[in-house]
Design a protein around this nucleic acid. Structure first.
Lengths: 224, 224
DNA sequence: ACCTGAACACCGTTCAAGT
DNA sequence: ACCTGAACACCGTTCAAGT
């Protein structure tokens, strides 16, 4: 029997689905969606790639589980706010900030269908829509519209973060360059976009996102 | 000099960016986003993988170009409709139907930032927002909200199409199974979603999408 | 200038073999 | 039951060599 000198590299606890998902999140946050690799994950867990498959069916499930973990935390707070409108805003902001902190989450949410993290979000939004006294037939439409808007912003923010990261510039320089490009568009072909260049440069993503939520909420309550 | 008997396999014209993008679209429509491979593309063009790189910088540019081609066609029609509302609806439906016909487009749009196809769409929407007599400071918010909603639906529809294709069931069975799952949710944890199961089963994606557009339009014009 | 196709440096996933 | 790690069947991309 070979006597091992010193403890093994860093494997005190056995592998588990939870430890794997935690490590996956760390990897995603550190090196982005492209850096989540079974080999890199195995190295971080001091094991081989094959071991991971004992606890997880594949990469898709791993990504879903990681998204669920982060999103669940973001939406964990009880529905705060005096009004349903405020509760929806708080919920939406929670998702927005989670994507801001974990850009890979945006791409994941934008591309997942009725996986469980999304279902929970739909439920939370729906309850507030109901509290807005929206008639039953319109509740589905209203909740879906809010959710789809949030997911649209999620995907775009994730893509922007990816682009900014790829060009190794900060978000500020990235927006600035885009605004400059907008201002130089052909006035014949892009009359509207051109005039929005200034607003693109100075706007605040978070506030703009919230303004969109308010717009939809106004539409939901507009017909009484 | 070797005399070639018969014409070569199917290479009469030389390679060109346009032929490559066309072939890429065909491949995407036939075998989905996962099937677009430089090797498969090269085979279809009767050439080697390396040749493609002479006309295109890489896979990202190829996907962007394919999306641009399809989206441009979908949004080519002049702004029809008597009212700006109708024009926005026509525009949004054009995008919706294009994604329905080419599911890969949904994932591509949801994940692209200010690439040119999106810019054109933003411009077209913005002009109608302006025509709605929205005050200048709110125009950016209104156009962005509409675009983000469209992109959110795009991503979800693409994901649903992928799931339905993976399980080899049609869209009908897929929706039916989801609705059944919703109806069996825990009434304590999912009171809202549970009651929406029936609506999920019977709803029409296209009409639901349009209803969301109308909701946002109502919000845009709500404050006068 | 444009094309060829082998080669490089990766992937996700599987699976016999170990403990 | 759980883990190991080599092996399989792929990728996108590069690049010397051809025409």
């Amino acid at each position: 029997m070979a006597v091992s000198t010193g403890r093994p590299e860093r494997r005190q606890e056995p592998l588990s689905r939870e430890r794997i998902v935690t490590a996956a999140c760390e990897l995603l946050d550190t090196v982005g969606a492209g850096g989540l690799t079974f080999r890199a994950l195995a190295e971080r867990l001091a094991t081989g790639p094959g071991a991971i498959y004992w606890h997880v069916t594949g990469k898709a499930e791993l990504l879903t589980a990681a998204a669920e973990a982060v999103l669940a935390e973001a939406v964990a707070a009880e529905d705060g706010g005096a009004t349903p409108q405020e509760a929806v805003r708080a919920l939406a902001l929670g998702v927005f900030d989670a994507i801001d902190a974990h850009p890979w989450l945006g791409a994941q949410l934008a591309g997942s269908p009725g996986e469980s993290p999304m279902l929970r979000l739909f439920e939370r939004i729906g309850r507030q829509v109901r509290a807005l006294a929206v008639p039953e037939p319109a509740q589905f439409t209203a909740a879906s519209a809010l959710l789809n808007y949030i997911l649209g912003v999620a995907g775009q923010n994730a893509a922007n973060a990816r682009t900014a990261a790829a060009s190794a510039t900060g978000r500020g320089e990235f927006l600035d360059a885009a605004a400059t490009a907008w201002s130089r568009l052909d006035p014949q072909e892009y009359p509207f976009t051109r005039t929005m260049a200034g607003r693109l440069r100075t706007h605040d993503d978070r506030e703009e996102f919230l303004a969109g939520i308010d717009l939809i909420l106004a539409g939901i309550t507009a017909g009484r």
